[in-house]
Design a protein around this nucleic acid. Sequence first.
DNA 1: GTCTATAGGACGATAGAC
DNA 2: GTCTATCGTCCTATAGAC
Lengths: 208, 208
Amino acid sequence: MTSTASERPQRVRDRRPAPERLKQIITEATTLIAERGFWGISIQDVADACGISDAGVLHHVGTKEGLLVAVLEHRDEVDIALLSQMLGIPESELQEGGGLSASLRDFCRALVARNAQQPEIVRLYSVLNAESLDPQHPAYAYFSAREVWATALFASAAAGTSNPARIARQIFAAMDGLQLRWLRNPDIDLVAEWDALAESIIRPYEMH
Amino acid sequence: MTSTASERPQRVRDRRPAPERLKQIITEATTLIAERGFWGISIQDVADACGISDAGVLHHVGTKEGLLVAVLEHRDEVDIALLSQMLGIPESELQEGGGLSASLRDFCRALVARNAQQPEIVRLYSVLNAESLDPQHPAYAYFSAREVWATALFASAAAGTSNPARIARQIFAAMDGLQLRWLRNPDIDLVAEWDALAESIIRPYEMH
DNA sequence: GTCTATAGGACGATAGAC
DNA sequence: GTCTATCGTCCTATAGAC
């Protein structure tokens, strides 16, 4: 799959302003990482997709780790903007330290519905979430912070239940796991399966 | 951590029959992978641990991916033997096409209790399960077959419920997801959390 | 400021000697 | 069955072209 130097097409030498080039690098890298995982791609692959040299890519992102962080932070920006719009809430509620005004059911349904439309991104996060369990992985800090942030968000939306912390963890676990089943078998109706699973998890903890 | 050529100790040249050497390679590789992850080790590391050259290792396993598959298949054998012992059932019930006589609760509890004792192996499976979502991945066939096998096993144990197929998928998803939470935060009591989560999932589908 | 060219050490893999 | 030798690729770093 990786191209060799002799096969690599002659590059057209078009210089671009940094922001535009960085955006292109992030776009191409996102696609490639989703397909093959972070350890499965090379800087050279990204460079080829962008029509520049590997050193050219490194000029913008520094290291391979820098490339990964750039990709992840860009996804977060896009998704937070879209989710806040879907739920009709300010973006601040979705960021660190914010408390959700939406119900747990509504919030989860919006999240899953969004994910159901971008399987390749979900796959990217699934692969990186597992890979980055190693403290030496470049994205370890990012995913550890994300775990804390997401758990707190779920818990704040579960404030009306008898055990918000446990519900948050169970919801988080069920969502990740069900997405793995769906990614391997796309025939699964992710949203419908999620509704049933979430209902089973939330109901026992509801206070009347 | 990786040794350099100059540091590497002089090898004693002892030739061994292939099955014995392969077993040694799998044992050493399992230990090393558990410590550093599959991407954190090199063929050279395994070769050093076995006292042979890197080409010597590749002679037995073909490729690095072949090494991985050998490790995984060996884990399956070991775990099936241990699980059947824990549950007091014949191994055939746990293999392809077998139907479980143990209850879903008992089976899952044994599975989770076993996993709680080997976090690095669970981590290995979590990483590879996500990576191998790509049909081009060398472990794609292995994990796809594993998905079918595990789902059928869960479903056979859920035969007494109103929707065995859905329960099987939900149980599978919840187990994978909860293990991810636990791997990132080892303070979580995996067995206790699982008992609560499984109860929420199974109860709504129980027939009285 | 953007990018190319080049070189270094480690890696996975292959070929052929013994 | 295991070795040595060798190949191509990987990431990184540096020097310098435009």
